[in-house]
């Protein structure tokens, strides 16, 4: 009889306690701040890294932001308060979204020279440039003095790619590269490219590789602990069975190159005929995820860290091979000094 009773009790416990559910925080001001803090604490992938590099102590942040007089705030104040808490992470992939505003920390680009004058860049493209997917391109004719002191005329392909959200396909890139068939090299200007789809990044970079090349690693969180990560997954770029550009390429960068653009630069560092020129990239080496606060505001945060081929985190950007910046004096003469530098790098 006792054995039967035990079986019934066990079965009932299984049925009643078998509900898989996680109670969200209450939709109060305190509940929302708590929920946001915990979301980052459990999901954000750079807490240890930010503590080591920027001295961000996320445990201390909790106490400071919960100690504020939340009961005196209205919804707008609460939004600013939560956005300020997220700003402590100094990560462009960490955002708070409401219908009224986007909470952000763009210090990765706002604290540095822009090194981009859109009008100046457009003057190099002119009005007759071609468009293939998200790529704007044209041939720049130039005169230069070669190593024997002779003046030679040749040409360089110039491509502007403003966002990795704009589609590119192998077909588009084939067309562009074929158009540049007589050019000595290509300037690939991704200044101001804030990222987009990693697929586009892989497609574009693959055309500049000769062989399958290891370019970095990726991992993801496997649990709620700050350091619960999967093993590093090697990332490779495999050249496509299409046109491969095995001549000089200069990739122009600035601090606004972020996220997928940062990954593109990481990849291109390993391409055989590529020079990265300009300013350090802005970073954004963590693939973001989204979640929601109890009040309904959206949250975005870095979730899957990316590394370079040496296993170093690329969250805080990648240095160019050659530093150069926009010269205001030359800009007044209608010259983009960064494009001019790139032209000199293509022999």
């Amino acid at each position: 009889m006792k054995a039967r009773l035990k079986i019934w009790i066990t079965s009932l416990t299984l049925l009643l306690g078998g509900c898989v559910s996680e109670e969200p925080f209450e939709n109060t001001y305190v509940g929302n701040v708590e929920a946001l803090w915990q979301m980052i604490d459990e999901h954000y992938c750079f807490l240890t890294y930010k503590k080591q590099t920027l001295s961000v102590d996320w445990k201390e942040v909790r106490g400071r932001y919960l100690a504020a007089r939340l009961d005196t705030m209205n919804a707008y104040n609460l939004f600013d308060h939560c956005a300020a808490m997220l700003s402590e992470l100094k990560d462009g992939h960490v955002n708070l979204y409401s219908t009224a505003d986007v909470g952000r920390n763009w210090s990765w680009k706002e604290d540095y020279p822009k090194n981009l004058d859109i009008e100046l860049r457009e003057s190099y493209l002119g009005t007759r440039y071609k468009i293939a997917g998200g790529l704007k391109y044209r041939i720049l004719e130039r005169e230069r003095v070669d190593g024997e002191g002779q003046t030679v005329k040749d040409s360089v392909g110039y491509v502007v790619y403003e966002s990795f959200s704009s589609a590119v396909s192998h077909s588009c890139i084939n067309e562009v590269l074929y158009y540049f068939i007589k050019c000595k090299g290509i300037i690939l200007d991704i200044r101001g490219n804030g990222g987009g789809k990693l697929d586009n990044c892989d497609i574009l970079s693959s055309h500049f590789f000769e062989t399958k090349t290891h370019v970095g690693y990726m991992s993801h969180k496997t649990g709620k602990g700050w350091d619960d990560f999967s093993s590093l997954e090697p990332e490779y770029i495999t050249p496509p069975d299409y046109i491969r550009w095995l001549r000089p390429v200069v990739v122009l960068t600035n601090r606004s190159c972020y996220s997928a653009a940062n990954t593109f630069v990481r990849n291109m560092k390993h391409a055989p005929y590529v020079i990265i020129a300009g300013d350090r990239t802005g970073g954004g080496g963590g693939m973001p995820f989204n979640a929601e606060m109890p009040c309904g505001w959206g949250v975005r945060f870095s979730a899957c860290p990316q590394y370079d081929a040496q296993g170093e985190v690329v969250e805080h950007g990648i240095s160019p091979d050659i530093f150069c910046s926009l010269d205001d004096e030359k800009a007044k003469e209608g010259k983009d000094s960064m494009i001019e530098t790139a032209l000199t790098l293509i022999e």
């Binding site: 992938c45 990693l198 993801h220 969180k221 496997t222 619960d228 999967s230 997954e233 979730a303 899957c304």
Partner: peptide, 9 residues
């Protein structure tokens, strides 16, 4: 998927 694993990965 694993805890923080993306479908891209």
């Amino acid at each position: 998927p694993e805890y923080g694993q993306s479908y891209y990965e």
